[in-house]
Design a protein around this nucleic acid. Sequence first.
DNA 1: CGAAATTACGAGTATTTGCTCGTGTTTGTC
DNA 2: GACAAACACGAGCAAATACTCGTAATTTCG
Lengths: 204, 204
Amino acid sequence: MPGQQPERRRQARGRRRMEQLADAAAEVFAEVGYAKATTNAIAARAGVSPGTLYQFFANKEAIAEALAQRYQTALQSAHDKAFDPGFAALPLPELIERMIQPMIEVNLANPGFKALFNAADMPERLAAPTRQLHQAVVGRIAEVLAARAPDLPAGQLRITAVVATQIFGALLGTVVAAPAAERDPWVTELKRALQGYLEPVIGA
Amino acid sequence: MPGQQPERRRQARGRRRMEQLADAAAEVFAEVGYAKATTNAIAARAGVSPGTLYQFFANKEAIAEALAQRYQTALQSAHDKAFDPGFAALPLPELIERMIQPMIEVNLANPGFKALFNAADMPERLAAPTRQLHQAVVGRIAEVLAARAPDLPAGQLRITAVVATQIFGALLGTVVAAPAAERDPWVTELKRALQGYLEPVIGA
DNA sequence: CGAAATTACGAGTATTTGCTCGTGTTTGTC
DNA sequence: GACAAACACGAGCAAATACTCGTAATTTCG
């Protein structure tokens, strides 16, 4: 078992180092995924010795946690934008546009985001909260759908929400992986896919 | 570097062992993925010592290769069924049904299939042929689409094929992961998603 | 200044894991 | 039956890697 990190009064230099290390970790995670990312590589990327890394993070998991926490804020605000109650009455294409946009942006702005919130190669400790978050998103989508198709049974509602999420997740990968210049067509296609799937269920 | 496997006259017992080992590997790969699967675990699952495993396979990669080869046959026949030229004139829902069915079946019949043909955590040596295969599938889908929408530009054709493949792959995961009893609704949903996406492009 | 705390180093440790090797058993062939 | 080849074992090697520890520099603060 790795050593615990005692409470400690960080000085400015230390806080900077933690940011550097988190940045480095984000890069490395984005490049090779959580499992294959070595702590030594993260330290090296940050221009620091392995020992220094462990002055600030108890273990590899703790680094991912710090990153996740940093992302959580961004994700929260993206969700707030995406699930604006005012959208309920919008025509389907606009609704999709508004819900998708913030999520794409947050993924583009934070490389390594997908690596952390998707990864199948993470320890249970970190995967569990992520799954919860994912479930919450599905739930909120189901609500939006329910508002537009009140007579749909709850089971079908949930299935639809799950599938829509999955379509989004799959194509999101392509969108963020594409070079900036070729991104738009993929985004357009993502919207069309969601629209084509949802329109028969909840109407335009 | 791991030792090479010299040519060797296998006896019946040996060939059986190789099957057992491949079966065990399929299970382990399906459960934890390629990267996290340990050769010792595979040997243990087959009820055999690590040394014995290496009597038959030069290294971990070789096990995956053997499995991939075994699957390739099944995959080929699935493709042959899925891309029957006679389907070109079918109404869209039937076309989708016929193309999807064999692919789902082959995935259900072979656990570990997805783990091998999907995995982001595989060495380049194994990932490369898989990517090629994937590209080929996209190409064939593009052909089918072209037959039905002759005036669509090639670029759009390709994008559509890629997206359709991605939608399929994403939902396929859910379908095979679901317990047999709950599988049908997901398959239905998969069809609806593809239909919704493709109909506006190539008509019913 | 001077002591305590924090930051930094990097060689080294413990563990995991792909894989080997010496040894013994089983199978096929004459 | 005898000999060689194939099969099997499992302790253990070598490399990778998460993490530690002794030591030393820097910062804080009275």
